[in-house]
Amino acid sequence: MDRHLKVPMEEQELLSLRAGDYVYLTGTLYTARDAAHKRMYEALRAGEKLPMPLEGNFIYYMGPSPAREGRPIGSAGPTTASRMDKYAPELLDLGLKGMVGKGRRSEEVRQAIIRNGCVYFAAVGGAGALLSKSITSSRVIAYEDLGTEAIRELTVEEFPVIVVIDSKGNNLYDIALEQYSKEE
């Protein structure tokens, strides 16, 4: 089912999402990938505040290519989410509502998604030029020294994603294999 939703998202809408739904997101996403997650993890260990509000927000696992003059961002597709599996459950327990990435998640992440009523979306991997067209602004808000891995606040408009793991823990990757595998 096609849905057009605002991010941050109304709880009721988030809980109604099902694995396989095609969703167009409009609103704010925060980018963070490997190095930013490591720093956030260390900040939490040191009892420091995180550089962005987690409560109700969504993280996009993405490190863009540089923007050309006059453009908000360069190529901007998802990176492999499983590298953030070590950090994600803690962030979800602290109020993060959703993640946009690509690829499988660990069972720990799936459990944290169920426990906290969250969602994991995939954007199409390797479609960074196309996805960049749904990003209208980008601003580095923390860890600027990390370059492409800095934390950015993005404004997105009709940004296309697919629900992979819904708040009940249904997983589209598993469903897809059951449906389409023709292996003996």
Binding site: G63, R68, G74, S75, G77, T79, G128
Partner: peptide, 8 residues
């Protein structure tokens, strides 16, 4: 002229 993928 946008890279096909951000991971160049």
């Amino acid at each position: 002229h946008i890279p096909i993928c951000q991971d160049t």
